[in-house]
Design a protein around this nucleic acid. Structure first.
Ligand SMILES: [Mn+2]
Ligand SMILES: [Mn+2]
Ligand SMILES: [Mn+2]
Ligand SMILES: [Mn+2]
Lengths: 221, 221
DNA sequence: TACATAATTTAGATTAATCTAAAAATATTT
DNA sequence: AAATATTTTTAGATTAATCTAAATTATGTA
């Protein structure tokens, strides 16, 4: 496709995520917050990306991805998630160790490598955090999923993804024995602080905070 | 170690190669030619690298690597060659397709990844072009090797490495059926143009130019 | 040794990405 | 609808890496 810099690719990826896949317009400040840069830098970059026709941008009105930009963003996301699978499946990384390295690897330019990597990994559909991997055409489908805090008492399901992929959160999940594929039953909900009592794999019952319960996604069964 | 930019790492690697592993001093122009930049750019960078204590540099006297710089260069070379093995062994790349991708991958920063990659590949000692892979401490040993043009008529050996790793050269070697491990016997040498008649794997006898014979390295047996 | 040639460094610009501070536009609240 | 607050853009700098052209230093040769 076009030649985008490392930085430009990261902006497109941010816009993709913030716009929920190109659906909403994204504000300058939202991008600045997300990337931990300043609004002025974002404005400059939006002009540049607009001139390359990868975003639609109008002063004071926010941006969104063009079709071309969406494709580019999806390629980067695809690469990120395939590399994460590689790191966990082949390099024996823990799921909390992969993100930072994948942030680097996602910018490697070699369509052949990605094709072969995907084949080597057996065409995985999800990354180690349960996020779907776009195919060559950018198509993907997320598993049906609900955050635990929205599940009724007595209901159960399987953990299919995590909303937060940060190391501290994933390490906490390791500690409480929660992982993609774990069976969760909601035993109780505390109105006062939104915390939840959950039964994990029919073994242990523990209490998780509201914040944690919002970030564990299960498929109800 | 220290934090070096992509660009700084490439300069250290160039100096390492041009100085034959830190033995000789390297001139500004030599670096500029090798990297296809301009001498003025090299001078600027040498000042910067000197201030980071990775090279010893004195105006008009050339540069060489400090101990620290040598270590950094060897880490990059180690990564480059391990990735090349990965691409050929696991990603089914041809040996002429790996260099450009390895130029990108060598800058990925993750000591854990390199450790695991090396283990995954079974601790290879040589890359797809026969070049030795430094270990964690930077130690390596090249196989004894002579370019074909320095071999006497009647002598034979095994191809252990190529001096030139460019795609056109490697594709030419593919065409004439030469590869790392091939058996070569020098049948004749033409004084006029320095070309050589060689017998490959006891099968075909062909004529190769002086330039080609200089770039195929064999171990005499 | 002196002159000519070659190599190297310096001076001054340029481009990409970033920032701070100030100005302008938009949104919210009386 | 004003006034106020928030958001966004512009103006002007900065840093890394690069370049061209000019100045300087070193080298080779007569
Ligand atoms: Mn990630
Ligand atoms: Mn992920
Ligand atoms: Mn190479
Ligand atoms: Mn190689």
């Amino acid at each position: 496709m076009i030649n985008l810099s490392y930085t430009e690719e990261n902006y497109l990826k941010s816009i993709y995520h913030l716009s929920k896949g190109g659906k909403l317009d994204v504000s300058t400040n939202a991008i600045a917050d997300y990337q931990k840069t300043k609004a002025a830098s974002v404005t400059d970059m939006m002009k540049k990306l607009a001139s390359k026709n990868v975003v639609d941008y109008q002063k004071y009105k926010g941006v969104n991805l063009s079709e071309k930009g969406k494709k580019e963003a999806l390629v980067v996301i695809r690469k990120h998630r395939l590399w994460e699978v590689f790191l966990v499946e082949k390099m024996k990384f823990n799921w909390d160790e992969v993100h930072d390295v994948a942030e680097q690897l996602e910018h490697i330019k070699s369509p052949l490598l990605i094709k072969r990597l995907e084949e080597f990994l057996g065409y995985p559909k999800y990354d180690p955090h349960g996020d779907p991997i776009p195919d060559e055409n950018g198509a993907y489908k997320a598993k049906p999923q609900v955050p635990i805090n929205e599940v009724e008492i007595g209901q159960e399901g399987i953990v299919v993804a995590v909303k937060d992929s940060s190391s501290p959160f994933l390490q906490y999940l390791d500690k409480i024995g929660t992982y993609i594929g774990a069976k969760i039953k909601v035993m109780d909900k505390v109105n006062f602080d939104g915390s939840n009592e959950i039964l994990i794999d029919n073994k242990r019952t523990i209490s998780i905070s509201k914040q944690v319960s919002e970030n564990i996604l299960i498929s109800e069964s």
